[in-house]
């Protein structure tokens, strides 16, 4: 049961950032509430002693999607439904678009926001593998500072990020990938909607005559946080993408995941499946 809470709705970014400074000990930011409200309901430690919720839904600075020649910039409080309806996202960032489409249900996507998906850095955050392979950067603001860091740097550990208590994730900036990249996003849950991810994978590759020019690989849910596999990416560079190599790469992914996580109760299932499905994903991308 949620005890009574104060909720304030600032109208601009400055107002919100000021509130974070004034009330820094007992306040939490709320956007869609799809993480905060169940967390409060369950009495999660993450929300212990919360007395004030700052609702950032009506801050125009963090509610838009813009495009320049080099990048797409998504406001932190953009909902997944807004992103799914956005043609730029759909055409230029298909992996992110697909990741958004697998999240929750229509009702959840209508409320849940992109920054909300990764600010608590849960391992199963669906957008993270896509943001990782797109080399997204995160814009973070406080009253006194403004910084932009890569998503990989931002996500420091399970349920931990570089976000300070007085800061808000204002924008997610994504360099527009060259048209030569092909890729896909894969999610496995226990059912086909409203499912917590058991495995997520994102792959982006650039090949020339079946030679791997560049490959970017990221996972979620099978690792303690969403990560890029730079060793595999280096290994694959310049390799001929034949069936034998794709199998090898899939086995290597399994080894890397095993190294990072060790054996867990779910490994017996997840490890073979992640290798198989990564292989399927690579084959699919190869065949276009």
């Amino acid at each position: 049961m949620i005890s009574s809470l104060e909720i304030l709705i600032p109208k601009n970014l400055n107002e919100a950032l000021s509130l974070l400074v004034e009330r820094k000990n007992n306040c939490r930011i709320i956007a869609g509430g799809t993480d905060v409200v169940p967390g409060l309901q369950q009495g999660s430690n993450r929300f212990a002693n919360s007395e004030l919720l700052i609702d950032i839904n009506r801050i125009p600075e963090i509610k838009s999607i813009t495009q320049t020649r080099e990048k797409i910039s998504i406001g932190g409080a953009e909902t997944f439904s807004d992103m799914l309806q956005n043609q730029i996202v759909k055409e230029e960032l298909p992996l992110l678009w697909k990741a958004c489409s697998t999240i929750g249900s229509v009702q959840i996507r209508n409320r849940a926001t992109i920054a909300g998906n990764f600010v608590n850095n849960a391992p199963c955050a669906d957008t993270v593998p896509a943001l990782l392979v797109y080399n997204a950067t995160i814009e973070v603001e406080s009253l006194s500072s403004k910084k932009e860091i890569s998503i990989g740097e931002f996500l420091t550990g399970p349920y931990k990020t570089k976000l300070n208590k007085d800061e808000i994730v204002t924008r997610i900036n994504i360099p527009i990938p060259s048209k030569e990249f092909r890729g896909d996003f894969y999610k496995l849950g226990r059912r086909r909607a409203v499912a917590i991810s058991r495995i997520t994978l994102a792959v982006l590759t650039k090949t020339q005559n079946h030679m791997i020019d560049e490959i970017r690989i990221a996972s979620g849910a099978v690792t303690p946080i969403g990560i890029r596999f730079s060793d595999l990416e280096k290994l694959a560079k310049g390799k001929y993408a034949d069936d034998k190599f794709l199998k090898l790469l899939s086995q290597k992914l399994g080894e890397q995941i095993l190294n990072v996580t060790g054996l867990r109760w779910s490994s017996e299932y997840k490890l073979p499946v992640v290798q198989q499905m990564f292989y399927q994903l690579l084959k699919e991308i190869e065949h276009g």
């Binding site: 034998k244 199998k247 090898l248 899939s250 086995q251 399994g254 080894e255 095993l258 054996l263 490994s267 017996e268 490890l271 073979p272 290798q275 198989q276 292989y279 399927q280 084959k283 699919e284 065949h287």
Partner: peptide, 22 residues
Amino acid sequence: LIEYDFSSPIINESQFISPDSL
């Protein structure tokens, strides 16, 4: 269905499923 041996969590090359029989 493939019988996995969990004592070696990395699957054999021969165990990979071809996409058309998935």
